[in-house]
Write a protein that binds this DNA or RNA. Structure first.
Lengths: 226, 226
DNA sequence: TTAAAGAATTGATGACAGTCAAGATTTGGA
DNA sequence: TCCAAATCTTGACTGTCATCAATTCTTTAA
């Protein structure tokens, strides 16, 4: 862990919450940032750790997951370069509730809580960017909660496929962004159920499984009407 | 709907996101606020409405709910005086995804989107307050999602009772804050299951149902170990 | 106050999805 | 490239909970 140098210059400019600033202002932020690298499998923070940094993912992939009251794991999201985490606890003097695990060789920048709070007061437009990001996340989280509360596994899977398709914009082809084990954890079900429901969807003619991760959607509207 | 007068002065000062400001600054905010009243059953906004106000609840109760992809309703939260809503869409030019329904005679203050954005730039500390609020809500929403994804109905009910107890601080007695029908919708289950699981919890000696809404918790730790 | 509407309970039944197990396939590290 | 470990698939079985229906209890508005 050392002060940010040349290539970390990228890091701040990668992130939507900062990259609207003047180059000069980004430079000011970078002065306060630290960087770090993690190997596959290393934990960046644990639930219960006191949280005091914003982590910006520069390179690699990070898995964010939580444990429920009874100890079961749920995958919350996977971070890609330009995403950030650790943001929640920045605004309350508390601890992380989730775990962040590097799932590939990973490089991050860290901005300290107090430094960030000063930045926010100095550049109010950063706050508005973060508020926008939080709004989206909150909307997304509530939509997800409603989905779990009201839809059965098959529908959750179908909706997930539809969203993949939309994100990837590859007309009818999509690539699952994670293993089916992780997908099961993300969707609140089991790998067995994922396998079976995908087989069902294929059997009903809505999709075709090309390979382990590649799926062709044959009838999007039909699939979503399940 | 008219400009805010005397008693609405309360409204801004009720809300944690504003009440840390100087009296004079609150007065400035109030000048831009409008007020409105709604009767039981009236809808304050619909999913799909263009959203352009922050709504602060002054008096009464508001039910926030969503419809899932397949049309099933889920109760998201119930607002009490001092709570606010409509905040999400303030930071993105989009529409509401949820419904807000007055469930009692209700009085609200509304602050327009553009007015609010100006306030945020002028008083950065308001942003930090809202960010804190958003952080908490986001954490809460993710915790809730994980609960739905990993816990069975009985556990979700037990955890809900435990949280009621904690909020109400009435040593072993709690009062359900909503009808069992709404509670079922909130917890992603049915009224029948709520009835049955409460009966089970009582049968196992963890709780005692005093009346429709009143419950005595006899063994909190035992109940949470289910 | 009371009638009507809505909410809560209880029972019977079936659908959905979790678990366990065994075999096939894929993956990634040496 | 290849092997060991991990992931994925399929089958059989079981537990949980949703649904439907019939009553009872509670709330609300005239």
């Amino acid at each position: 862990m050392h002060a940010c140098h040349q290539h970390e210059k990228m890091c701040v400019s990668l992130v939507p919450i900062f990259n609207h600033l003047e180059t000069e202002q980004m430079a000011e932020i970078m002065k306060t940032a630290k960087s770090g690298t993690f190997k596959r499998g290393e934990i960046i923070y644990h639930a219960g750790d006191k949280s005091d940094s914003l982590y910006i993912l520069n390179k690699g992939k990070i898995r964010i997951y939580r444990l429920s009251e009874s100890g079961k794991e749920q995958l919350v999201r996977i971070l890609h370069p330009g995403d950030f985490t650790g943001e929640l606890a920045l605004f309350k003097e508390e601890t992380h509730e989730s775990y962040a695990e590097a799932i590939a060789m990973t490089q991050i920048c860290m901005i300290n809580r107090t430094d960030l709070q000063e930045l926010l007061l100095k550049y109010p437009s950063i706050s508005i960017k973060i508020l926008t990001e939080f709004s989206n996340r909150l909307e997304e989280a509530e939509r997800q909660t409603t989905r779990f509360a009201t839809e059965k596994a098959e529908t959750r899977i179908a909706v997930f496929l539809a969203e993949c398709l939309e994100d990837q914009g590859q007309f009818n082809m999509l690539e699952l962004p994670m293993s089916k084990k992780d997908l099961a954890s993300y969707l609140g079900t089991t790998p067995e159920t994922i396998s079976r429901k995908l087989a069902d969807l294929q059997h009903k003619g809505y999709i075709r499984q090309i390979s382990n991760k590649k799926i062709e959607v044959l009838d999007l509207d039909g699939m979503l009407l399940i």
